[in-house]
């Protein structure tokens, strides 16, 4: 087998996951939060694929494919909500959603 070992894959996946986490927590535009969520899911996919090669078991790849579909589903609902927000002229900012407050 050639190329970097699994450890490298997982390291990149962990860094990506961290980036995605930071984005979700930090950004206020729901659009970018959704994009950051995609990064988190993709980081998980990378880990799954890396481990899948590690064990020579296709389970991880299958998992990754299912995750892609799920990610698409989340995006559809998220974008639907964002469109509904815009239609009602509500501010697109997760922090200024003031109607509900802790």
């Amino acid at each position: 087998m050639m190329g970097p070992g699994t450890t490298w894959y997982i390291a990149v996946a962990a860094v990506l996951f961290g980036i995605g986490t930071t984005g979700v927590i930090l950004r206020r535009s729901p659009l970018i939060v959704l994009l950051s969520l995609e990064i988190m899911l993709n980081a998980s996919n990378l880990a799954l694929v890396g481990f899948s090669r590690q064990f020579a078991s296709v389970d991880g790849q299958i998992f990754a494919i299912c995750v892609m579909a799920v990610a698409a589903a989340e995006v559809v609902v998220g974008l639907g909500l964002i469109v509904a927000f815009t239609r009602r002229k509500m501010p697109l900012d997760v922090d200024t959603l003031t109607e509900l407050r802790g």
Binding site: T6, T7, I10, A14, F17, T22, Q54
Partner: peptide, 28 residues
Amino acid sequence: VGAAIMIEVIVALATKAGGGLSNGTEIT
């Protein structure tokens, strides 16, 4: 939070690396 997750996993990996992660199984 972001850094914690990264560090957690990378530390976990570092301690594991000596074990078996680096050498993948032969694949068909």
